[in-house]
Design a protein around this nucleic acid. Sequence first.
RNA 1: GUGGGCGUAGCUCAGCUGGUAGAGCUCCGGGUUGUGGUCCCGGCGGUCGGGGGUUCGAGUCCCCUCGCUCACCCCA
Length: 412
Amino acid sequence: MSERIQAPRGTQDVLGEQAVARAELEHRAHAVLDAAGYARIETPAFEATELFARGVGESTDVVQKQMYTFSDAGGRSLTLRPEGTAPVCRAYLQHGMARLPQPVKLWYLSSFFRYERAQAGRYRQFWQVGAEAIGSDDPAVDAETILLLAELLEELGVRARLRLGSLGTLDARNRYRERLASHLHAHAAELSAEVRERIDANPLRAFDSDHAGTRAVTARAPKLLDALDPDDVEHFAAVRALLDDAGLPYDVDATLVRGLDYYTRTVFEFDSPQLGAQSGVGGGGRYDGLIEALGGLPTPGCGFAAGAERILLAGENVPLPTATVDIYVGYTNPDRRRTAFALALAARRAGLNAQVELAGRSLKGQLKHADRIGARLLALVEAEATALKEMETGEQVTLGDDAVVAEALRRR
RNA sequence: GUGGGCGUAGCUCAGCUGGUAGAGCUCCGGGUUGUGGUCCCGGCGGUCGGGGGUUCGAGUCCCCUCGCUCACCCCA
């Protein structure tokens, strides 16, 4: 048993009901995002390692210890994408999308990879549905991306709480960081080891800690929301006003910190209590410095990403489409197989969902199988003619082989 | 990387204080030489995660190891 090869840790086969649920998720994401004018984009599963090192941030856990990085035969350092925003921004630059009407609105449903221990709702290969609007710093962009994610979650039966914050511009944040760092240094002894080591590299992460001592220190720390520049305050107020108008409730959370370095101004996260330890279903924010960090002209951007597995875990009461089998074609004698096979092909060409006996089953076995898969009609090819049977009622008629498809269509 | 729980047929599991493998479900066949959903019978299917040790004998005890899972860290 142990010699049998299994899917790698943290990965999974998607089949059966799970596959149907995912197809439904993609279907609804399409509907919601197409309606707002977002265009689908697919980027490569791997990118130059440099893209994530520069885009996501050297001090982040994602870059420091969670990347699947390898060298290809040409000696290039490549990395399986751990997130979607940096690749989309790379594509924006590479294809000169600055020349298109701004903002450029893109969405994706793709798999991502992070090397970490799997647990409920967290995997090494996971799927995210995400959207990015690049090229405008208008607060309407922030509000729209938040509302689109809210609508998508609603569509998929996820009840989630929205937390909202603002990190300010890079300048304001940098000034605040120094004040926060000195506060943390002053109480270093009470902090957890991880937070203490990162006081200078990324002090804001202290707000994310569950460590009791750390929480006590951060509770007394200066708040970033109180340190924003007037422009940022105004921007944040405009975003909130649009959300208020739309009737979307939220909690302003001064300590909301996201794990990636590129965020500026608006940040948000949707949490679901149905998820267990990993309560975040999705989130996002504004990243006005990212395009520039990747070598482009200063260009604002804003987007969200939500975990597909977490949505499916937290979602409820979403009706899933059931597969229908209009007709099952069997036969009473193996020498009728060719006729049965041709009949099934003809039925499909006529637009019916048709299946044909593929396993050489006994007659009883075929009836049983047709019943199990939920076939509405059974065509039984006999020596001289074909019997067409309504599975539910048992009603049966005998027809010439070439009349079966027409009769099946009539009864659909 | 750290800690807890768990690893017996494809799936869900039973196997008491060690005696040398079972059930249900699924799948296939049969039950008046050609008609399903219930029922009955039968069949396919297991190196008891792997290795080592103790023992006359281990799925049951000990050690190591691998895997799954939940949680920490962190994140979607």
